[in-house]
Nucleic acid binder design. Structure first.
Lengths: 176, 176
DNA sequence: TAGGCTCAACCAAGTGGTTGGTGGAGATGC
DNA sequence: GCATCTCCACCAACCACTTGGTTGAGCCTA
């Protein structure tokens, strides 16, 4: 019953109404309580659904440069095809400040992401793939910041990602 | 009466209650309506107050490198001293998706920011101050994305900004 | 007298959540 | 076959409470 996710994307958590969600699914709002005891449970389910969507980005190529490019390309495609997903992510980041349960879900999500990125960046260091050796931890945060910062502006994402790649990798080649 | 801002920072727009705001100021909630006809007006006032806070970042040094560093340093200090301000900004970005008035306010805000950044980056291009000539428009978006992406994670901002400077400026010197 | 602020009381429209009950599918016993 | 029982998804009605907003009257200063 995670069509509730759609509502969050549309009206945000602020406008999330159990009755509306129930109607979307075609059931009574009291029936909804049968599946999610409380509104908080629904929110949490949305959070976990949303973060799970990023699992598709799994492992990339072994080559660090191509792995980084693939990672960003994957995000870019998602950003293009499912912008609401990223909007909800912003919403969740914000909500995590007040809702410990959401905070924990998002922390898990980001820990995984951070791990993937760090691995790629460290591998690139080992292979001398970057313009210069990188501080893995900090660069990870930089990449995350860029992605997060671009979530609500999908139009600019493509160019920004390319620029970021340029800044990290030395190559100035244009890729498809 | 922009102590309402504090409430937004604390509970977000989702939890913003006119009665609570009024109580903070020590007046009745109906009196609040005397100053802000509608809740929307209050929200808009908060939006304009919040964006106005960034005016203090005005002009920087003439030298592009120092201007960029000063710009980021200024943001970093604000991020450190008034993290709520940035949290509210995120909240506003999100709200702008549904509220045209807020959207317009944020658009104005960002247009100004974009202008400042573009000017600095273009000046740096002219002076050959960067590691390599930059695409001004795209790099502007990149910097904006980084700043936006770091709004909810002030701890990482310092290192991330430094890394960004490193990537744009060629110098590898450590600054205070 | 007039005008700006203030409040108490009120209102309609929701809000999340609860309760008691209906009907159908599947298992069980005979 | 048939009655029974249990579980599950479901709903209508309801509840206590909150919300943004309105009204009318008082207060104070000019």
């Amino acid at each position: 019953m995670l069509a509730a996710f759609g509502r969050v994307a549309e009206v945000g958590f602020e406008g999330l109404r159990l009755r509306q969600v129930a109607e979307d699914v075609g059931i009574d709002h009291s029936t909804l309580h049968h599946h999610f005891a409380t509104k908080q449970d629904l929110v949490l389910a949305v959070a976990e659904y949303a973060t799970r969507q990023f699992w598709v980005l799994g492992e990339g190529p072994a080559d660090p440069v191509r792995a980084l490019r693939a990672h960003l390309a994957g995000l870019l495609r998602m950003l293009d095809e499912r912008p609401e997903l990223f909007a909800v992510t912003v919403e969740l980041d914000l909500r995590a400040r007040r809702d410990p349960a959401v905070a924990e879900a998002m922390a898990r999500h980001q820990a995984g992401w951070r791990e993937v990125l760090s691995a790629v960046l460290a591998a690139g260091n080992a292979a001398g793939a970057w313009r210069a050796p990188l501080d893995v931890a900090v660069t990870t945060e930089l990449v995350i910041a860029v992605v997060k910062g671009v979530r609500l502006a999908p139009e600019t994402a493509g160019a920004v990602f390319a620029q970021l790649e340029d800044a990290l990798i030395g190559t100035r080649g244009e890729q498809s």
